[in-house]
Amino acid sequence: MHEMSLVISILDIAEAQAREANAQAINRVNIEVGALAGVENEALQFCFAAARRDTMAAAGELVIEVIAGRGTCRHCGQDGPASELMALCVACDEGTLEIFQGRELRVSSLNVD
């Protein structure tokens, strides 16, 4: 369950940034998670609820923005959606996709007091 490791990193980043901004508490942590990143968002939420205790985000929430997968077709060269890593190009229905979007794992912003 690597989601707990990720949540620890998320809280480390959030607390460091919140302290730098002289904040007292973290109300919300906004993160971006690529749909193809190999991460379960429910598990992230579950771990966050457990891990936030005794941090500046003790009463904070985790808001996950899912970044849809996109890739370039290895056959016809068109850019298109990738619902999974081995998705076929929707334009030609022949090539698999070189993924260029959808693997993100990023803390985008915080809401702090």
Partner: peptide, 10 residues
């Protein structure tokens, strides 16, 4: 409350 921009890879 205020927003703090972070943009940092987890």
């Amino acid at each position: 409350s205020r927003e703090v921009k972070v943009a940092q890879d987890i």
